[in-house]
Design a protein around this nucleic acid. Structure first.
Length: 532
RNA sequence: AGGGGCGUAGCUCAGUGGUAGAGCAGCGGCCUUUUAAGCCGAAGGUCGUGGGUUCGAUCCCCACCGCCCCUACCA
């Protein structure tokens, strides 16, 4: 296979042949390094020239050549590895003819290993004076531009490896992401939760409301859904006596792609028996405050123009939030009584739409079949959601939009449920789990009757059976890991925190390289499954 | 899906109704403490794709493809 830029590709292949002709293996198996570039700068970064020469430090270090400055019979290069760089200095009179010829055949991007002693140059840069040079891997393709890195966003996502080599910020984001996940695991492990893995392929849709991806198992001749949420399996485990469980894994939802949505995204879900929704709000505060401190060094985290303060979490009921953020221009905010009244929400929606329509703002769908609770949910989203920049729990969700949550003891129209919003994004969703099998069955049946692509086609009978065996009072919560990482890395697009975000069909050049004709583009008969 | 923006050398970007330019990378040469190394020389392009307008299009118009932003669905 050959790749563009072809002239450079062929040139590098030629050099590799010449390197082999010099007696060096093209693909050596192993390199015994004593230090990574980072370790050298960490351990000897403070050593003076005199200290280095008196200590006579010998190192073996490997890395990718990211800078190359030949000077006739000598030359400098930088090896990058472990997130740091170390300069190497190669002299003909030190390494000898053969190794110097090798040096001259090296290119930017090659992986090399050297042995030598540390010293400081005239400009005081810590440098390895090379005594032995080896090619470890030839790069047959050139690196992106050396000081702008790779800027084209599409290329950055499609060829993330180049983005990671060229853009330090990208590397930083994904190291931080790993740190977030590590801290989450530590948090839950310390508190006696058991990490589990539940199925990614579900025979029945459940645990959330979303359009699924479908697939098929051939041997079992069985249609399956990629899971939209692990919830119903995790609660089965609580029935089974795993009283504290968590899972960090992917969910798949066949819906829109934008700055905060990707079809596969990572979710933490956790459940604990003998607890309830309000208790989880406290736990969530503790979790996020601790994460902010560990990941960002303090409770205040910059996000774009703003500072987000993870030391204070506001709590508002959904109805309070609607009142609080009701636009002044839309007249008097709805009263508590109006929000509770049977036809109140519908009238409020009409009032809001009368205000919003002429202004070109989003209006709320005045669906005749929509329940009061559904309208409250929509009012909240239209009016309040985008204002929730500082960490804010919204609690007391209408039960109609919370099919898996337990009702409040003092008000059966409300679910004991909350969502956490930060920077206008929904970050977490938790509640007291509905453990009454009769109520759950009723709500499942309503979903099936309601129909639609995001609703289950059948009642999950086994889940009702599990509840019938007895789910202890339990609280559960889901936290969107990608969005959390966005907050802690000041990233404003979910694609920035997902290594390989889903993009449209790959470029034609790839298909050409693979020896195909232009990529297969479904022609006319695709309208049904492609249109949204 | 609707509205807006972008697509020029391998990369980062200029530019123009008269068939294109810089820096980096690559190639040849000089150079034994450079670091955006330097100096000299040569090369590199169906200007996203396909139509249209025009004597002539990379530029103007239309369609399509891809990416980005906003809106809608959604977490």
């Amino acid at each position: 296979m050959e790749f563009e830029p072809l002239d450079q590709y062929l040139q590098r292949r030629k050099k590799l042949t010449e390197i082999e002709a010099l007696g060096y293996p093209a693909h050596p198996h192993k390199f015994d390094w004593t230090h990574t570039p980072r370790q050298i700068s960490e351990r000897f970064g403070a050593s003076t020239s005199e200290e280095l020469s008196s200590q006579n430090v010998e190192v073996q270090v490997a890395g990718r050549i990211v800078a190359l400055r030949p000077h006739g019979k000598a030359g400098f290069a930088h090896l990058a590895g472990d997130g740091a760089k170390i300069q190497i200095y190669v002299r003909l009179d030190v390494v000898g003819d053969q190794a110097f010829k090798l040096f001259q055949l090296l290119d930017l991007g090659d992986i090399a290993g050297v042995r030598g002693h540390l010293f400081r140059t005239k400009t005081n840069e810590l440098t390895v004076k090379v005594e032995r040079l080896q090619l470890l891997t030839k790069a047959l393709l050139p690196l992106p531009e050396k000081w702008h890195g790779l800027a084209d966003t599409e290329m950055r996502y499609r060829r993330r490896y180049l983005d990671l080599i060229g853009n330090e910020k990208t590397r930083e984001i994904f190291l931080r992401r790993a740190q977030v996940v590590r801290e989450l695991r530590r948090f839950f492990d310390e508190r006696g939760y058991v990490e589990v893995e539940t199925p990614m392929m579900h025979p029945i849709l459940g645990g959330a409301t979303a359009r699924p991806f479908t697939t098929h198992h051939n041997t079992l001749d069985m249609d399956l859904y990629l899971r939209i949420a692990p919830e119903l399996y995790l609660k089965r485990l609580v029935v089974g006596g795993l009283e504290r469980v968590y899972e960090i894994n992917r969910n798949f939802r066949n819906e829109g792609i934008d700055a905060i949505h990707q079809p596969e995204f990572t979710m933490l879900e956790f459940y604990q028996a003998y607890s309830d929704g309000p208790a989880l709000m406290d736990l969530t505060e503790e979790l996020l405050r601790g994460l902010a401190e560990k990941i960002c060094g303090g409770a205040n985290v910059s996000f774009g123009e703003r500072e987000i303060d993870f030391s204070r979490f506001e709590r508002l009921s959904m109805r309070e939030a609607i009142r609080k953020f009701w636009p002044a221009a839309a007249g008097v905010a709805p009263s508590k009584e109006e929000l509770i009244a049977k036809n109140g929400p519908r009238k409020i929606v009409e009032r809001y739409n009368t205000f919003a329509r002429p202004k070109g703002l989003d209006t709320i769908d005045e669906d005749e079949n929509a329940s009061a609770g559904e309208l409250i949910g929509e009012l909240f989203e239209a009016i309040a959601e985008q204002h929730l920049v500082q960490p804010t729990f919204i609690h007391d969700f209408p039960v109609e939009i919370s099919p898996l949550a337990k009702r409040r003891e003092d008000d059966p129209s409300l679910a004991e449920r909350f969502e956490l919003f930060v920077a206008g994004m929904e970050i977490a969703n938790g509640f007291s789990e509905l453990n009454d099998p009769d109520d759950q069955e009723r709500r499942f049946r309503e979903q099936v009757e309601k129909g639609g692509q995001e609703m289950p086609k059948e009642v999950d009978v086994d889940y009702i059976r599990a509840l019938s065996h007895g789910l202890p009072p339990t609280a559960g919560e889901g936290i969107g890991i990608d969005r959390l990482v966005m907050l802690f890395t000041d990233s404003h697009a979910i694609r920035e925190v997902i290594l390989f975000p889903l993009l449209r069909h790959a470029a034609e050049a790839d298909a050409a390289a693979a020896g195909q004709d232009t990529p297969v583009k479904p022609s006319d008969d695709r309208s049904d499954n492609r249109s949204q």
